[in-house]
Design a binder for these strands. Structure first.
Length: 317
DNA sequence: AAGGCGGGGGT
DNA sequence: ACCCCAGCCTT
């Protein structure tokens, strides 16, 4: 049984949904690749990387067998490089469990998927739904915002609902037998109409059902049409170009730019990472590289002697 | 509960 | 100068 609200959004999605590459497949590997790439990363930037990645690693078997260095190279431009490492480890876990000879070795339930590295509550639900067509509810930033507005009201009206409350709303909304379309549809609405800034309620198919729109559309609250943020004062923070995060990125990028399998000494790497490099920075650089090595993003090749400058590092083969 | 983790785009 | 983006993991 589908309600009028559900049918309205499903019809809107059928007519207006974007033709995204991962919506054309139910291959769990391809769906997984897309979902990992889409974590905190916009659709438009993922699309070309998704195609290129699948060209390099067409199946879970090939990804599992690849050199980590090549997987890290393929991740360039996506950010959050640990996702690449975790994705390959997930592929290795699936293959070691017997996939594809045993298709059941690829987990198809949220609980089973949740056990794979890099897969949290959202991604587990999304893969169960989008690859295995299970009628499950899950929350990403789009679904959370749509459900928040639809079932609770404007973000400007406290109190902020608990995550569990929003998830309960989301679960009630999933039309039995149509979880795939429903979850794609509600995410699509959040991405294209019910946006964080300047939601376009005038072209929203659900506005007559929406708790937030009820408030926003009343004459004396026009001022709240734009959800305004509390505007908390924030302590002045360090410029991004001075953060660990920035230099971790620079280090991995420098190793990507080097020919495959080349190791760089810290003395060689330093000037590539900061223009004002002097040997004074050696301990700082060694510490950053050690952190990256702990994450599996780089590997120490040699740490001979006590001369930090001669320690060398490469992408992990 | 908070902080770390990348990078690009929008306003 | 912020904010936002198909989050996850560790502490």
């Amino acid at each position: 049984m589908t309600t009028q609200l559900q049918q309205t959004l499903l019809d809107w999605f059928a007519a207006n949904g974007r033709d995204l590459p991962w919506r054309r497949t139910r291959d769990p590997y391809r769906v997984l690749v897309s979902e990992i790439m889409l974590q905190q990363t916009q659709v438009e930037r993922v699309i070309p990387k998704y195609h290129a990645f699948l060209e390099l690693f067409p199946s879970v078997v090939e990804l599992a067998a690849a050199a980590p260095a090549e997987v890290i190279r393929a991740w360039q431009g996506l950010g959050y490089n640990r996702r690449a490492i975790n994705l390959q480890r997930a592929a290795q876990a699936v293959v070691e469990a017997g996939y594809p000879a045993d298709p059941s070795a690829f987990p198809s339930t949220p609980a089973g998927l949740r056990d794979l590295p890099g897969i949290g509550a959202y991604t587990a639900g999304a893969v169960a739904c989008f690859a295995f067509e299970r009628d499950v509810a899950f929350m990403d930033t789009n679904i959370r915002r749509v459900v928040r507005r639809l079932s609770v009201g404007p973000e400007t009206v406290p109190p902020e609902p608990r995550e569990a409350e929003l998830l309960a709303h989301a679960e009630r909304l999933v039309p039995p037998g149509q979880g795939w379309s429903w979850n794609q549809a509600i995410m699509e609405l959040g991405a294209t109409i019910c946006t964080a800034a300047k939601p376009q309620c005038w072209r929203c198919p659900l506005r007559e059902h929406c708790a937030a729109y009820q408030v926003w559309s009343t004459a004396d609250s026009q001022v709240e049409l734009l959800p305004q943020t509390p505007r908390r004062r924030k302590a002045a923070e360090v410029p991004f170009q001075q953060t660990n995060r920035y230099f971790r990125g620079r280090i991995v990028d420098a190793l990507r730019a080097a020919p495959p399998q080349t190791a760089l000494s810290l003395a060689e790497l330093g000037p590539l990472v900061r223009p004002e490099w002097t040997s004074e920075w050696l301990p700082w650089l060694a510490k950053l590289v050690t952190g990256l090595a702990n994450d599996g993003l780089v590997a120490w090749i040699s740490q001979h002697g006590s001369e930090l400058a001669h320690w060398s590092v490469a992408l992990p083969e």
